[in-house]
Amino acid sequence: MAKQYKTLGEEIWKNRVETISAELFIFTYGSLVTQLVKDYEDYDQVNAHLEKMGYNIGVRLIEDFLARSGWGRCTDFRETMEVVSKIGFKMFLNITPTVTHWSADSKACSLILDENPLNDFVELPPEAQHKLWYSNALCGVLRGALEMVQMQVEAKFTSCVLRGDDISEIQVKFVRHLQEEVPDPDD
Score class of each variant (00 low, 15 high):
residue 30 G to Q: 11
residue 30 G to K: 02
residue 30 G to E: 09
residue 33 V to K: 03
residue 33 V to I: 03
residue 34 T to W: 13
residue 36 L to M: 09
residue 37 V to W: 00
residue 37 V to I: 12
residue 39 D to A: 12
residue 40 Y to F: 10
residue 41 E to R: 10
residue 47 N to R: 08
residue 47 N to Y: 03
residue 47 N to S: 05
residue 48 A to N: 10
residue 51 E to A: 11
residue 51 E to F: 04
residue 51 E to C: 05
residue 54 G to L: 00
residue 54 G to Q: 01
residue 54 G to T: 01
residue 61 L to K: 07
residue 62 I to T: 15
residue 62 I to S: 12
residue 63 E to W: 12
residue 63 E to C: 08
residue 66 L to E: 10
residue 68 R to N: 15
residue 68 R to G: 07
residue 69 S to T: 09
residue 70 G to H: 09
residue 71 W to A: 11
residue 72 G to W: 10
residue 73 R to E: 15
residue 74 C to Q: 09
residue 74 C to E: 13
residue 75 T to F: 11
residue 76 D to M: 07
residue 77 F to C: 04
residue 78 R to D: 06
residue 79 E to A: 14
residue 79 E to G: 12
residue 80 T to R: 14
residue 82 E to G: 06
residue 83 V to S: 10
residue 84 V to W: 03
residue 85 S to V: 02
residue 87 I to L: 13
residue 88 G to I: 02
residue 89 F to T: 08
residue 90 K to G: 05
residue 90 K to E: 07
residue 91 M to H: 07
residue 93 L to S: 03
residue 95 I to L: 11
residue 97 P to I: 02
residue 97 P to S: 03
residue 97 P to L: 00
residue 103 S to T: 08
residue 107 K to T: 06
residue 107 K to L: 11
residue 108 A to L: 10
residue 108 A to Q: 12
residue 109 C to H: 02
residue 109 C to Y: 02
residue 109 C to T: 01
residue 111 L to P: 02
residue 113 L to R: 01
residue 114 D to G: 10
residue 114 D to F: 07
residue 116 N to H: 02
residue 116 N to A: 06
residue 118 L to D: 05
residue 118 L to F: 05
residue 119 N to E: 11
